[in-house]
Design a binder for these strands. Structure first.
Ligand SMILES: [Mn+2]
Ligand SMILES: [Mn+2]
Ligand SMILES: [Zn+2]
Ligand SMILES: [Zn+2]
Lengths: 124, 124
DNA sequence: GTATTATTGCAATATAATTGCATTAGTAAA
DNA sequence: TTTACTAATGCAATTATATTGCAATAATAC
């Protein structure tokens, strides 16, 4: 027995699915109806990341956002796309565009991350 | 009288110049000879950012790095380039390549940031 | 139903950075 | 040179996010 199905996990997954955006612990705590501790939210989210169900990105304001993986295969993940954060409604979302960069001669590339802030179509 | 010239400021600027890389408070504290408080380093660095002498970027490990501005004009700054962090020697540097991204229809673009980790030419 | 152990809640801790406040020390004016 | 003004500093305390320890709870296999 590895992972167990719990009300907390179901509620968090549902919220992520219905929002269609990336959410921080803070946002989840504010929006979720299921009663659960702050720490439980973090632990649930981190377990999802370990299981490859979500990915986690640190925003330029210093908070982690969690988004459902899409287009990731079991053992071949790809989260190297840009993330957008709306300065008005605070919405964070994964953008389809991959982050591509060219390193100087002799460098070996590991991971890449990219952020864009601005105003979404609703807040524009 | 606005800003004053102090030993702390001179020492930090010198270190940034001689290193040629972006440095965190922690790195500066470890390398600087001038005796100064941790908080002073943060305050000096933040004042440099306010004055447009340096720019500050939050890395994917959650620490701020400070780099001298180059190619910035008095009132026209541009720090939207990729930043590289070496997983071996911890060096962080500004890359010349600008971060370019296309937002969906109706979105307004604000700032962009980009990070790449990997191994530098020395650690490769 | 029972045993096993993953999950949870709550308090405590970790990590990075900022703030409050009294003291020190640049700088411009006298 | 001396004085007045206030920017800069040191140290302690605080803020902001996230993680860890541990006892209690509850999901799941048998
Ligand atoms: Mn994924
Ligand atoms: Mn600049
Ligand atoms: Zn918006
Ligand atoms: Zn290196």
């Amino acid at each position: 027995m590895k992972r167990r199905s719990t009300p907390a996990k179901k509620a968090v997954i549902e919220l992520l699915k219905s929002s269609g955006t990336a959410l921080s612990q803070e946002m989840i705590e504010a929006q979720i109806t299921e009663k659960m501790d702050r720490v439980t939210i973090y632990r649930v989210l981190n377990s999802f990341c370990e299981d490859g169900i979500t990915h986690r990105i640190l925003s330029d304001e210093g908070k982690y956002y969690f988004a459902l993986c899409s287009g990731c295969e079991e053992d071949k993940h790809n989260h190297e796309h840009f993330h957008f954060r709306c300065l008005e409604c605070q919405k964070v979302e994964c953008l389809p565009q991959p982050v591509i960069v060219n390193l100087p001669e002799g460098y070996i590339q590991g991971n890449t991350t990219g952020w864009v802030t601005g105003y979404c179509n609703n807040c524009n």
